[in-house]
Design a protein around this nucleic acid. Structure first.
Lengths: 233, 233
DNA sequence: CCAAAAGTGTTGCAACTACACCCATGG
DNA sequence: CCATGGGTGTAGTTGCAACACTTTTGG
C-alpha cells in the first residue's frame, strides 16, 4: 500500500526533539538511508488522525516515548521547501521508496507543521525506524547543515522555547523526575543563552512553590552532596 | 477548471481580519451564499505559491488592501474540522460548486493555517468575491456562532495579538496614519481587556520615542482639540 | 580543614501603579 | 468660567541584579 492512500498529501510534521545532556541542549537528528544528510524526525498525517496525534505518533516511533511534552510552534509553507529542490532528493526518495511501493509521494511540494518536544534524555531509546538508518543527539549550538530548511526550523523552535520558558515552566520536562538545583539552572542558562546568578535563581525558582526537596541527596563526587528536587504532586 | 488543479488539497488558510471602529475591536466576517453562517475570510494555497503569499492574496481579494500587517499564529489540524462534519456543508458546497466545476474539492478534511491581519478600518472596501454574498464587521466580544471552529480561531488570534502587543508595537496598524493619544489608548485597552491609567500610558508610549506630534489638531467637537500623532518616519 | 552546596541579607536599579496636581484651550 | 485634553511630580511596590556573608557537609 502506498503512502498516498494512508496520508494527507503535501503536509508533513517535523519534530524538533530537545534533550539535555552533559550541560548541553541537544536535538535528536536522524539520517536517511544511503544519504549523508541529517534531518529532523518527520512524518505525515493520517487521513483519520489529528495533527497533534500525528506529531505524538511520530515522536513515539522515533524515541519510544509516550505522553511527552509537545508544542506546535510554526508552520513552514515556503514554495521553495520541496524535496525536489535539494540535491539529496534522489537519496531520500530512494530511502522512502525502499520502504514503500509508491516513489512519488514525497516528490512534491510540502508544507510542514513544526512541533518541538521536550524529553528526558536518559529515557530515550532511539528507534531509527524504516526511513533512517542512524540517529544522534547533537548540540544545538553546533549543528551541521541539515536537510532542506531544517536548520531554520530548529532556530524557530528554540526561539519559541525561550519565550515560553518562564511562562510555562517548561524546563522541568528536560530533566528526570529528580534533579539538583544547579542542573535546573544550567538548563535555564543554556536555553536563555546567558549566565544567571545562582542565589537569585534559586530564590526565584523556590518562590514559585512548585518544587519539593527530596531527603535523599545526590551521591556523586567529593564534598557536600547537592539536594535533589522534584516537582510537587 | 476545478479547484483541485489549482490548489494544494487538504490545506486552507483562514485570515482573522482585525479592524478598529467606534472604540471597538472588530473582525471582518463573510457569509456564504445561500447560507446563514458567517465565516472568516479563507482560501487555498496555490501549487506555486508560498503560504504567506496565499494569505496576502486572500486578504487582498476580500479587502482590496495590499501590504497589510499579517502574522501566522497557529495551524488547526483537528480531525473533526472538516466540512462534512457541519450542518452547513451542503450550503457551502453548493456555494463553492456554483463558482467552479468540481463539487468535491471542499468535501474533505482540511488543515487550516491561521493568520491575523491588522487593517485600517477606514481604508477597507469590502469585496465579497465569488463564494460569499455578504460581509460585515462584527464586534469581537459579540460574535455569533461561526462556521466550523472559526470562533476558536478568532480567540486564538486574539490571544496571540495580545501577547505581541507590546513586543511588536502592533497597535498602530489598526489606526490610520494619524490618531489621537486617547484613540491609541482605547486600542490598547480593548485588546488587553483592561483599563489603563491615562498619564502612565502616555508616558510609556511617548518614551518609546516613535511618535511624532502633528501641529494640526483634531478639529472635532467642543472644548480643547486633542493633538494628532503619527509614527516617526 | 577545604571545597562545594545551600541559603540569607542587603543595596540599588528599573519599571510600573495610582494619584494628586497643574497648565492649555475652545466655547 | 468650565469641560476636556495634555502633562509633571511623586510615593509605593515589585522584580531583578549584584554581591557579601553564613552555614552545612563529605572527604
Amino acid at each position: 500500500m502506498g503512502l498516498e492512500t494512508q496520508y494527507l498529501p503535501s503536509i508533513s510534521v517535523d519534530c524538533v526533539i530537545f534533550g539535555f545532556h552533559e550541560n548541553q541542549l541537544k536535538v535528536l537528528l536522524l539520517k536517511f538511508k544511503k544519504s549523508p544528510v541529517w534531518a529532523l524526525a518527520g512524518g505525515f498525517v493520517g487521513f483519520e488522525e489529528d495533527v497533534d496525534q500525528a506529531a505524538a505518533r511520530i515522536l513515539e516511533e522515533r524515541t519510544g516515548l509516550k505522553d511527552i511534552y509537545l508544542e506546535q510552534f510554526y508552520t513552514f509553507g515556503d514554495l521553495a521547501r520541496n524535496y525536489r529542490a535539494v540535491d539529496e532528493h534522489r537519496d531520500v526518495n530512494a530511502a522512502m521508496g525502499g520502504a514503500v511501493e509508491k516513489l512519488d509521494f514525497v516528490d512534491q511540494r510540502f508544507i510542514t507543521i513544526g512541533y518541538y518536544a521536550l524529553v528526558d534524555y536518559s529515557k530515550v531509546v532511539v528507534n531509527p525506524s524504516g526511513v533512517s538508518d542512524a540517529s544522534e543527539w547533537m548540540d544545538v549550538s553546533a549543528l551541521p547543515k541539515l536537510f532542506l530548511d531544517h536548520n531554520r526550523i530548529v532556530l524557530k523552535a528554540l526561539e519559541s522555547l525561550r519565550r515560553s520558558l518562564d511562562e510555562k515552566l517548561v524546563a522541568f520536562e528536560l530533566l528526570g523526575d529528580t534533579f539538583t538545583m544547579s542542573e535546573l539552572q544550567v538548563v535555564y542558562e543554556t536555553i536563555l543563552g546567558k549566565r544567571l546568578v545562582r542565589t537569585n535563581f534559586q530564590r526565584k525558582i523556590l518562590s514559585l512553590d512548585i518544587l519539593e526537596r527530596i531527603e535523599k541527596k545526590y551521591t556523586g563526587g567529593a564534598h557536600k552532596a547537592p539536594y535533589l528536587y522534584r516537582l510537587k504532586t
